[in-house]
Amino acid sequence: MNLWVIADHTLREAVRRRVVLAAAVVIGGFLALYAVGVWFGYRDISTDPDLTMSMRRVIVGFMLQGGMWSLNFVASLLAIFLAVGSISGEIDQGTMHAVAARPVRRAHIVLGKFLGNLMLLTVFIGVSTAIMIAVVSIITGQYAERAWTAPFAMLFAAAILLALTIAGSTRLGTLANGVVVFTLYAVALVGGVIEQIGSFLDNPVTFDIGIATSVLLPTRALWDLAGAQLAQQSASTTGMTGGPFSSLNPPSGWMLLVAAVYLVLALAYAIRGFQRRDI
C-alpha cells in the first residue's frame, strides 16, 4: 500500500539526510554529560549525613525528571523540525509534483509522512529514555517503578506536535508554520507554569488559563503525566513535587482523551488541507 511506501520513504530520507546521525551524536553527548553529572551529584548526596533516605530519593527523582524533561524538549523540537516543511517544502521545491501525480491518495501521503516520522521519534524516545533510566538506576541504585510509562506519554506528545506541524505544513509555508507551531508549543509550556502558580495561589482564573493552554496544545499536560510517573515515589514519600519539570496537579484521565481527540483532529485537518490544496 502506498501509505507504507511514503512512510518508508520518509524514514529513509531522515536517515540519509543525516537527521538521525545528527540527533544521535547530540543526544549521545548529552547522555554522557548527564551520566557524569548524576554520578558526581549522587556521590555528594549519598555521603551527606544531613540528608535522610527519603530526601535522597526525592533528589534522585528530580535528577531523573530534569533529564527526561530535556529529552522531552529535544523530542518535541525534533518532531517540529522533521515535519515543518513536510508538505509545503516539497511543493515549493517541486518534489511533490511527480509524487502526487502518481496513483497515491493525498491522505496516504499525509499519513505516510506522519507514520515515517513517528517511527523515527519512537526509536529516538525509546532508546534515549531507556539509556537515561538505566544510567540513573545503575548509578543510584534507585528505580522509579513506573518510569517506563513516561516514554509513552512523551511519544504521545511528540505525535501530537508532529500531526499539528504537518497540518500547518499543508496550509502555511515552512517558516510561517515553524513560527506558529513553536509559538503554540511555548504558550503551552508557559501555560503549565501559570497553572502551577494558579494552584499555588489558589486563584481559579489563573488556574483555568493554564488549563486552557493545555487544550490549545496538550503537550505540556502530557509531560506532566510523564513527570508524575517519574516522581511518583518521591511524591508519595515526602509530598515534595512541583518545580519546573513537573506539576503539582498531574492531568486527569480526561486530558488523555482530549489529547487523543486532538491528535485525530489534527491529522484530519492535515488530510483535508492537503486534499484541497492546489500543487
Partner: peptide, 21 residues
C-alpha cells in the same frame, strides 16, 4: 482520480526530485 493517474506518466516542468536518492 486514482484510475486516471494509473494511466499517466508525468515529467514535471521543474524536474526537481529528491536529491538524496
Amino acid at each position: 482520480s486514482l484510475a486516471a493517474r494509473r494511466q499517466i506518466g508525468f515529467l514535471p516542468e521543474t524536474f526537481r526530485f529528491h536529491q538524496w536518492m
